[in-house]
């Protein structure tokens, strides 16, 4: 192999160019743009005035009352919105993991041709647009929808269970939206797992629980972590499920930011600032994770 890579060495920079272009154009440039906008002055009814100010961050941190002239107090509103979104995302990640891990394990331990079928079945619903899937979820769980009518017909409940426009519905929507993002990485990890390790442990009289906890889970941990990140991060910014299934009664981070650009408020710098703070939070979590990973390897 070294001879091949040596042959490519002079071309290295050129071969890297597409990656740099993509990272620069689709990642660095938009984020820098948001960063700059978050420090600009809000223009009435959308847009910005090119005068630097900290007003957007000030609005995020301090509450000056309904009329904007009360003495500043710590602003809980946005912290609440962030906390609500983080809780929802954590819940979705938890449920995806609980269901996704056994599913992935099940698929990975089937015969090769059956694996293909199971994986296919997991991904089929995701060929349909997310919006349509979320709307159809709404049809399923509404008061006179098939779920409630089925349960009533079976005599399990007397009156419809209110699901639509509740947090349970939002959880369900997020769970359904992102489940494959949990199943697939874990599947990939379990597939590479050497089952001889389990057999060896079993020969040494390790009970099943210990094999799972001390051998299987640590070995497939990178897959679990990757799945958790892939579910948590998009759930955090999601606004389709909260809006359609939760009734849009309260802002999530995603809908709060959306409202600043599309809604009546038209406060672009504040939307940009909220997006930057969200980005910062995600980066902190990912950095902490990367740290703990590199430490455990050393």
């Amino acid at each position: 192999m070294p001879t091949v890579s040596a042959a490519f060495a002079p071309l290295r920079n050129w071969l890297m160019a597409p990656s740099w272009l993509i990272v620069g154009f689709f990642l660095v440039l938009p984020v820098l743009l948001m960063l700059v906008y978050s420090f600009l002055t809000k223009e009435f009814r959308g847009g910005v005035i090119w005068e630097p100010t900290l007003a957007a961050y000030d609005q995020f941190l301090f509450d000056r009352g309904l009329f904007g002239d009360a003495p500043p107090r710590l602003q809980w509103a946005y912290i609440q919105i962030f906390f609500r979104s983080i809780t929802q995302a954590a819940g979705a990640t938890f449920f995806c993991l609980i269901i996704g891990f056994p599913t992935a394990y099940f698929i990975a331990t089937r015969a090769d041709n059956a694996k293909v079928v199971w994986l296919f079945l997991v991904t089929v619903p995701y060929w349909v647009n997310l919006l349509i899937r979320t709307v159809s979820m709404k049809f399923l769980i509404r008061d006179n929808g098939p779920l409630n009518e089925g349960l009533t017909a079976l005599g399990l409940i007397d009156a419809p269970v209110q699901l639509i426009n509740t947090n349970v519905a939002v959880q369900l929507g997020l769970f359904y939206s992102y489940l494959p993002f949990m199943v697939l990485p874990i599947y990939a990890a379990v597939e590479r797992y050497n089952f001889a390790l389990s057999e060896a442990a079993s020969d040494l009289y390790a009970p099943k629980w210990i094999i799972l906890r001390r051998i299987l889970i640590p070995v497939v941990m990178p897959g679990i972590v990757a799945g958790c990140i892939l579910v948590f991060v998009p759930s955090l910014g999601a606004f389709l499920a909260p809006d359609l299934l939760g009734g849009a009664k309260t802002f999530m981070i995603g809908s709060l930011i959306d409202e600043q650009f599309k809604g009546n408020a038209g406060n672009w710098p504040f939307g940009a600032a909220a997006a930057m703070i969200l980005l910062l939070l995600v980066l902190i979590v990912l950095t902490l994770y990367a740290r703990s990973q590199s430490r455990s390897k050393v």
């Binding site: 009435f44 309904l66 904007g68 946005y78 919105i81 849009a248 802002f251 009546n264 408020a265 406060n267």
Partner: peptide, 17 residues
């Protein structure tokens, strides 16, 4: 006008927070 609109925006944000 901007002053009045600002309060209406504030009412809406508080409503959905």
């Amino acid at each position: 006008d901007e002053a009045a609109q600002k309060v209406y925006d504030q009412i809406w944000t508080r409503l959905k927070q």
